[in-house]
Amino acid sequence: MCGFSRMDFSNKSKLSRLLTLIFIVSIFLHGVLILSTSIWLFVANVVLPCSFLTKYYAALAVYLVAGVSNIAVVGASMFGSYFFKRSFVRIFMFCLAFVVSLELACIITSSTLRNENEENLKKDMKSSVISILSKNDTLLADSESFRCWRAVQTRRSCCGVDSYSDWCPGTNNSTGCLQSGSQGLEYCSCTTDCQSLGGRSLHTTSCYSSISDNLATAFTVITSVCSVVIILQCVTYWSLYFILPKINSKAVVDTYKPKPVARASNVAVSDF
């Protein structure tokens, strides 16, 4: 306060604009961080045409929107400060509250889906395999579930929910499994990091572990990044909220000026 009181109006104005600019740039950097990590998470978690995975992609979508919104707030602040000078603060506060709400939604969604992943993902994948095995072979290739598993096993280099035996639950050995003619095994073939089974090379990776591990990593990243960003945004905003009024307040010496003492008038000396 004392340091600010000694500054003239021009320096106070420059300092206020500088602090506001730093705050807006920090929001832009938060948006770049969230946007870049969301793109990375989408690449790591290839979007697959599976009904049992759709709900898990919701967290990634909300996270992507949060990153875009942070960057959009910077554009809105520039636009608002130029066209809506009087109501700019209200517009900016509304945009900032919206962004923070999205980031909170990311944390809540990620935490909820992490628990869902641990409890129900394997059950949903098992049910999908069972639905494939129960269908007529002539309709299998056109079913949504089969297209899903064909994409999962091809793109993730895995086989079955836990292993290849998920495609032949009624057999007691590997030979019988291969002879069952399950079409799900056709997309388990591989050339590297494989297991040899009856003269065929199959993927050894479990599709459940591959998908579950990637989703768990994605939820951890989303929760961590959004938590840090929210804390930084709240701390920097409230710091700015308390500092700017002190910068722009008038100094004591400016508000109270003692009246000048009137000089004593010359008094004529009487001659005695």
Rank of each mutant, 00 (worst) to 15 (best):
L140T: 15
N45M: 02
M93N: 12
S87V: 15
I230D: 05
L232M: 09
G80L: 02
M7V: 11
R263D: 15
S239F: 12
V43A: 08
S16M: 06
K257D: 04
I107S: 00
F219R: 07
S212M: 09
V269L: 02
L139H: 11
S145I: 06
C177A: 01
G160S: 03
D166Y: 00
R114K: 15
L35V: 07
L244R: 14
A58I: 13
L48W: 09
D254Y: 05
S239P: 03
T20H: 07
A218K: 02
F83K: 11
T20F: 14
S174M: 04
T192E: 10
M78K: 08
S249N: 10
G184H: 01
T191Y: 04
P49R: 07
L18T: 10
V253A: 01
V46W: 04
G199Y: 04
N115M: 12
K259L: 10
I222N: 07
T192P: 07
K55C: 07
R86I: 15
T255Y: 00
N120M: 10
Y237H: 05
Y187T: 08
Y237L: 13
E116F: 05
A97C: 12
S128I: 11
T54V: 09
F23R: 04
N117A: 11
I24V: 15
S38D: 08
K250D: 12
V261R: 11
G176D: 03
T138D: 09
S270Y: 04
L33A: 07
L29W: 00
V99I: 12
K123P: 08
N248D: 11
S249M: 12
S101K: 02
R90M: 10
I130H: 01
S134H: 03
I211F: 03
C159H: 05
L178V: 00
L240C: 13
I27Q: 03
F272L: 08
D213R: 14
C106P: 06
S174T: 15
D137W: 02
S87K: 01
A262L: 03
S69C: 13
V252R: 07
F9R: 14
T112A: 05
S13G: 06
R200D: 13
G80N: 07
V68L: 01
S239E: 11
T37R: 04
N248V: 13
L244Y: 09
L139I: 11
I243C: 02
S128G: 09
K135P: 13
